[in-house]
Design a protein around this nucleic acid. Structure first.
Length: 517
DNA sequence: CTAGGGTTAG
């Protein structure tokens, strides 16, 4: 019965069952307590764990190796390393698993020195212990020491290699990862995921897709959910809709329809590629949804101008019993600010802090500034910035600047720019924005002078870019981009569309579309 | 029938 609960992650039931056993005076054997201790450990139920510890002493199970090892894990998980160590020293029979548990305890509590001391003292070091120690250095970012230990290992297995691959990936060494990957004789799905993860981590999304294609074409290794999630995210970032659609079919043909990770990836891929309707379809087809699913669809709707829909999904989320987190409110505030619902946005911001007790982060304050400023309440936005408990960063001033431009309030634009230049005087992006503001305000001479100054100092803004699938492949583009061979036609089409919008009553600004010569 | 190691989403 306990094992059934344990396997299904319902640890509280194991504890409840054990209470029943005690009440009914069932005689314990050596298999009983390890399961209960493990459940207490998973629940971080330290007090209950201590009671089980007492029961172990009273009933003569304290010398049992499994009991001792579980006690080490329990106390380590609860941050009580000293208690864990005491349990370790009091053990009669310590085997390599007990040593690993104690070393893990030190690692988990940030004491790598003690962990390493025990590692060097351990009477037996098997492959699991070696790998664990290597992982500890990787998690600390010490790839030199990780590599040193890895090279010392006599008994490396595939998992050791994969651990190192992921270490390189996590620490941003794509080349190191590639080199090790190519040197490996045997590769499984974790190896491929390590390589793909390194590319994803490094923003090399085309390489993600290439590696995935290579895996399918040249090996018998089958992708799993982790692979698909990374590949879908790469499609989302690149805007590669056709491959994304192919993946959707692959997912359906290979039994990943019920996989929350994969479906969340699909929803985001469709949203980022512009097909909100498909994103909604996938979302609604999911019978299991988690926090990420709700957040993904809310954000998708918000950024696609379906703010009202985003808000109604938010109520559905709460009705479904899902607790919103900080990311949820980013989507909600974004939806409100894009619909001009200043009052409602502020209400949500206050419910986030007062009702859900979520500590606002700088991005939430940024959303509120955006909400107020976009709504034309520039003065209030500045007041809000001054009332914030955190110092405003460049994102916040940029939001105020953008709104100042929309509402043609040059004095607020100048304030924002002044702050931006103070925060980051060497960032050429700030001068580009200053130049744009002057341009719009008709101060063409100032603008021209600034452009010359920027050219002379050689500062060049690194543009944020987007990309989209075209018939010829993936086209990458940024704001004011003039690199495409059909630039003239593209801007002509955009100008035409903008004029059409204007005819139907939209207030638009054509100056952004004027080609600079 | 019980303890230890690798990847994934907003």
């Amino acid at each position: 019965m306990s094992k059934g609960y344990l396997q299904n992650d319902v640890f509280s039931e194991v504890v409840a069952l054990f209470c029943d056993m005690m009440r009914e005076n069932v005689v314990l054997n050596c298999y009983t307590l390890p399961v209960v201790l493990k459940s207490c450990c998973k629940l971080l139920a330290l007090r209950e764990g201590e009671e089980v510890h007492c029961i172990a002493v009273k009933n003569g199970f304290i010398s049992n190796t499994y009991v001792g090892t579980n006690l080490i894990e329990l106390y380590s998980a609860g941050g009580r390393v000293a208690c864990a160590y005491r349990a370790f020293t009091e053990m009669v029979d310590r085997n390599v698993v007990s040593w690993t548990a104690m070393i893990n305890g030190y690692v988990a509590n940030g004491d790598l020195v003690s962990a390493r001391r025990l590692f060097d003292l351990a009477p037996e070091r098997d492959i699991v212990l070696w790998n664990r120690m290597v992982t500890a250095y990787i998690e600390l970012g010490d790839m030199m020491e990780a590599k040193r230990l890895f090279d010392m290992m006599q008994c490396k297995d595939l998992m050791s290699y994969n651990t190192m691959l992921n270490g390189y990936a996590k620490n941003g060494d794509v080349e190191g990862c590639e080199r090790l990957f190519e040197s490996m004789q045997e590769k499984n799905i974790f190896s491929w995921n390590g390589l793909i993860g390194a590319y994803a981590h490094g923003g090399r999304f085309l390489d993600v897709l290439d590696a995935f294609r290579r895996m399918l074409k040249e090996t018998d290794v089958q992708p799993n959910d982790a692979t698909l999630v990374n590949v879908l995210a790469a499609c989302a970032r690149l805007g590669v809709l056709d491959f994304g659609k192919w993946l959707h079919k692959y997912v359906e043909d290979n039994g990943y329809k019920g996989n929350v990770y994969v479906c969340n990836g699909l929803v985001d891929m469709y949203a980022k590629c512009g097909l909100v309707e498909c994103a909604i379809d996938v979302f609604e087809s999911m019978d299991k949804k988690d926090l990420i699913s709700w957040n993904t669809i809310i954000n998708a709707l918000a950024v696609h101008g379906h703010g009202a829909n985003a808000l109604s999904i938010f109520s559905k989320m709460k009705n479904a019993g899902e607790e919103p987190d900080g990311i949820t409110f980013i989507g909600i505030l974004c939806a409100c600010s894009h619909m001009g619902l200043v009052e409602e946005g502020l209400l949500h911001f206050h419910s986030m802090t007062d009702e859900y007790l979520i500590q606002p982060k700088i991005e939430h304050y940024g959303c509120v500034v955006d909400l107020l400023a976009r709504g034309g309440l520039l003065e209030q936005a500045v007041e809000f910035i001054h009332s914030m408990p955190i110092k405003a960063d460049s994102v916040i001033w940029t939001a105020l600047l953008a709104a100042s431009r929309i509402h043609k309030k040059v004095e607020f634009a100048e304030l924002s720019l002044q702050k931006l230049l103070e925060l980051d005087p060497s960032n050429p992006a700030n001068y580009v924005m200053l130049s744009n503001v002057y341009g719009e305000a008709g101060k063409w001479e100032d603008r021209a002078r600034l452009k010359v100054a920027m050219r002379d100092t050689g500062s060049k803004k690194v543009p944020g870019w987007s990309s989209i699938q075209t018939q010829d492949g993936v086209a990458e583009f940024y704001c004011f981009d003039e690199r495409h061979s059909k630039t003239e036609e593209i801007y002509h089409a955009l100008t035409g569309l903008t004029k059409l919008l204007r005819l139907s009553g939209f207030r638009t600004d054509l100056t952004e579309l004027e080609l600079e010569t």
